[in-house]
Every structure is written in structure tokens, then in C-alpha cells.
């Protein structure tokens, strides 16, 4: 009874079930691998708008195809929805900070000596300062602790990337060399999580519930 009276705990439990499917890991991991290959291949096609439009659409379709037939449909309250909007806003701010930063790194009159520092330690600074922070933010606001784990793992990966990648490469190419294995790790763990989810929650027709 006391469980039923703990409404915050119930809401959180209901919300967390929706992230047990590993789709967030798979989509984020795929995007990181895709962006990494895109940077390394030097293809001159602007993929950002493509990803911005189709990314959420693919996400929604996967949720409908995989998650909803297994755990049902739910509309969360305004508090949870406003929290999700804050995550989206945080993403938009992070992407804009990244764009402004890359603009200053390239044109750089305002950065002065910071420009050299960014070029020298960019893999650690930009990697840990932005990519790891984004992963941590997703984990924190979506209450998915796996993403805090990815953020923690990514910091030593970016530090290792600083020493292991060719210093003669462009900063973003060096970052891509770390983002690809990090994305593959997320894809692999997301795949395992999805497999567990599908086993734990078979489609309701599969378990023969007919009343």
C-alpha cells in the first residue's frame, strides 16, 4: 500500500520502464559512429539537417514498433514533459556552443592563446567538456544511469585519444577517432539492453493473455 501512496516513486518507475529498451543507447551510439565516419571520410554533404529531421522520426518509429507493443502506451504529466523539453533545450545549447567554438577555432581572432591550447588539448577539452557532458546530461535528466556510465568511460577514452591519435590531424578528426569506438560501445550495450527488454517483456499476444 505504501508503494501505491509513493506517487513520485510510481511515476519514476513508469518512466524508467520506457528507457529499459536500450533504444536511446542505440540511437546515440549510431549517431556518434555516423558523425565520426562523416568527419573522417570528409564527405562534403551537410548531414546535420538530415539527422535533425530523421533522427527523432526514426526514434519515434522504433518506440512504436518495439516498445509500445510490449509495455503499452502512456502519456506522462506536464512535469515530466517539461523536464524532457529542458533536455532538448540543453542539447540545442550544447550544439550551438560546439558550432560557435568550431567557428572560433577556425577563424580565431578572439581566442588568442586559447586557440593554441584548444588545438593542443582539444581532444581532452572538447571531448570531455562537451561530448562527455552531453552524455552525462542525458543520463541525469532522463534518469538513465547507463549514460552517466558512458560519460565516465568517455573521459579516459578522450584522454587516451589525446596521446594515441596523430597530432598532425585536424581536431575534429582526432575527436572522431574516439567517438567511433565510444559509439560502438554504446551500440553494443544498447543491443544487449534491447535483447534483455524483448525477453523480459514479450509482446502481449505472445504470452496468451486472453482473460
Amino acid at each position: 500500500m505504501s508503494d501505491a501512496l509513493d506517487v513520485d516513486g510510481l511515476e519514476r518507475k513508469a518512466y524508467l520502464v520506457y528507457n529499459e529498451d536500450g533504444l536511446l543507447d542505440i540511437i546515440t551510439g549510431f549517431l556518434m559512429v555516423f558523425i565520426g565516419y562523416y568527419v573522417l571520410s570528409k564527405v562534403d554533404i551537410p548531414f546535420a539537417p538530415f539527422l535533425a529531421i530523421f533522427g527523432p522520426a526514426v526514434w519515434a518509429s522504433l518506440k512504436k514498433a518495439v516498445t509500445e507493443p510490449r509495455i503499452g502506451r502512456v502519456k506522462f504529466g506536464p512535469g515530466r514533459r517539461s523536464r524532457q523539453q529542458k533536455v532538448i533545450m540543453a542539447f540545442a545549447v550544447a550544439v550551438n556552443v560546439l558550432l560557435v567554438l568550431s567557428f572560433f577555432v577556425k577563424t580565431g581572432p578572439f581566442l588568442g592563446p586559447w586557440r593554441t591550447t584548444l588545438y593542443t588539448y582539444g581532444v581532452i577539452l572538447v571531448g570531455s567538456g562537451i561530448v562527455s557532458l552531453i552524455l552525462f546530461t542525458i543520463g541525469h535528466f532522463n534518469e538513465v544511469s547507463r549514460f552517466k556510465g558512458y560519460a565516465a568511460v568517455s573521459v579516459p577514452m578522450f584522454v587516451a585519444g589525446h596521446f594515441l591519435t596523430d597530432p598532425g590531424l585536424d581536431l575534429f578528426q582526432r575527436l572522431a577517432h574516439v567517438m567511433i569506438p565510444l559509439g560502438l560501445l554504446m551500440l553494443a550495450y544498447g543491443g544487449v539492453t534491447l535483447w534483455r527488454f524483448v525477453r523480459k517483456y514479450p509482446k502481449i499476444t505472445d504470452v496468451g493473455v486472453d482473460g
Binding site: A4, G72, R73, V74, G77, P78, I204, V209
Partner: peptide
């Protein structure tokens, strides 16, 4: 019924399957 009402209290709406999963109750 307390479980059903409590689960519906924390969301705006939910479908039958969601409540079955969350409460562990059978269809009937």
C-alpha cells in the same frame, strides 16, 4: 483498484497494456 488508481494518478493517460504491465494484473 488502489494500484490502478495510483498508476493513473501519476500520468495523464495510459492504455490497458501499460496498466497490466505496471500492476502485474491479468486481463480479466
Amino acid at each position: 483498484r488502489l494500484l490502478i488508481v495510483a498508476h493513473l494518478f501519476v500520468v495523464e493517460s495510459a492504455d490497458f497494456l501499460f496498466l497490466m504491465r505496471q500492476t502485474g494484473m491479468t486481463f480479466g
